[in-house]
Design a protein around this nucleic acid. Structure first.
Lengths: 221, 221
DNA sequence: GTCTGGCTGTGACATTTGTCTCATCGGCGT
DNA sequence: ACGCCGATGAGACAAATGTCACAGCCAGAC
């Protein structure tokens, strides 16, 4: 991969967006490329103690999720090009807190933990920016907790539809893993949302007809 | 409050534990004290855009929680002396992501956002340490999501009991708000845990008889 | 003392959600 | 063509959870 491409990738990523090109090129040299097929596991919860590194998505979609003993999945978030993941183990050196796999074929670049820590010490701006990224991530997680604890399935599905507008469509199974329920519940919820005129269904395709109505359903718990 | 006391408080707090006493005294001068009665609201979700500040608990117990329209509560975490809260709005300048109130009478010290940001830029060590704190907080939130999504109420209650050992006992209503359920469910769960010999109940007091058994119940979902 | 408010303890019941099963459709490879 | 696989659609049922109602108990207020 060319130096220019690496620089572009780093610039598209919130951690490094504001650095001088020279520095970006230096960081680019430390990146390691990894490719994954659709469905392939990137890492598992508990893996790689102390060997964690910052992961940057270059192409494809990556999924972070928790697994229960019975095999149920809870997706924590989806990442698209420019997004980073495994920040937490990269910063604290602990084990991976969750699993990651590729939802679509993906290429990922990895910045070793040591390189990251050195950058943080040399460039306080990066550290302050990183804190803002971590803050955003915490906001996202509190939203997820709010969803799971205080909203019913249909409201969560409505919220997911609103947030996912413009992105590639998800299968009902994938939606179920994201809102923490079973596929059948997603199916039923979609159909009652359609009955109420908020969306229109054509097989896997979801068209938002009335975003207002969807928001109301989200708020109504 | 004396300068010594302020220094002690800062030293008990993970952000500042490793700084030289001189610097601690300087930071101490920027702290503002606030006192709260039991049950008093400290801030509400959405409050104080841009005016957020880092809060440090000096005494008492503070509760961070989400509210639904119907009045249901979900506690995100409890803070005791030395813990900090409102880190997220302090770092990103956004609105408070949740509500805070005092579970017991509490005194809290506040470090204004500007002072915090200046410290981060002057002392990269503080920034790196802050990132580790934020990472720990994210781990805690993913644990909460895992609980809510993948475990049943009794398993969550068992986990809460294990984690809360050694701390002051909580009322069943408070436990319910922490595990995201109704008080009656907590009551029933406690009694079946007692039937199985894992704990012993004497009114509000919970005694752990068999921590192993509790762990198994947590794992069993 | 009495009264009040918060806590625990319980039972019946409604609602929500999860599970199981099956039918159908369409794409894809052979 | 054929079979296979994954997706959606849907009904019946079971399990988990939430809600309501009420009782008893105890500490603090008056």
């Amino acid at each position: 991969m060319s130096a220019e491409r690496r620089r572009e990738l780093l610039q598209s990523c919130a951690y490094f967006a504001r650095l001088e090109p020279q520095l970006l090129d230096r960081i680019g040299l430390m990146l390691v490329q990894r490719r994954f097929r659709a469905g392939e596991r990137i890492f598992a919860e508990g893996d790689d103690e102390g060997a964690a590194a910052l992961h940057i998505v270059d192409s494809g979609v990556v999924r972070i999720f928790k697994l229960s003993l019975e095999g149920r999945e809870q997706v924590l978030r989806l990442m698209r090009p420019g997004d980073t993941f495994a920040d937490v183990p990269a910063f604290d050196g602990g084990p991976y807190p969750a699993n990651a796999d590729a939802l679509e074929p993906a290429t990922v670049y990895i910045l070793p933990r040591r390189a990251l820590l050195a950058l943080l010490r040399e460039h306080p701006d990066i550290a302050v920016g990183s804190l803002q990224i971590m803050a955003a991530r915490l906001r996202h997680m509190t939203g997820l907790v709010e969803d799971l604890s205080l909203r019913r399935v249909m409201a969560r599905v409505a919220r997911l539809i609103l947030e996912n507008q413009g992105n590639a469509s998800l299968s009902q199974s994938q939606m179920a893993a994201m809102v923490g329920t079973a596929r059948e519940m997603v199916n039923r919820s979609l159909h009652t949302l359609a009955e109420r005129g908020a969306i229109s269904l054509d097989g896997p395709a979801i068209v938002v007809l009335d975003a207002e109505a969807l928001s109301e359903i989200v708020e109504s718990g």
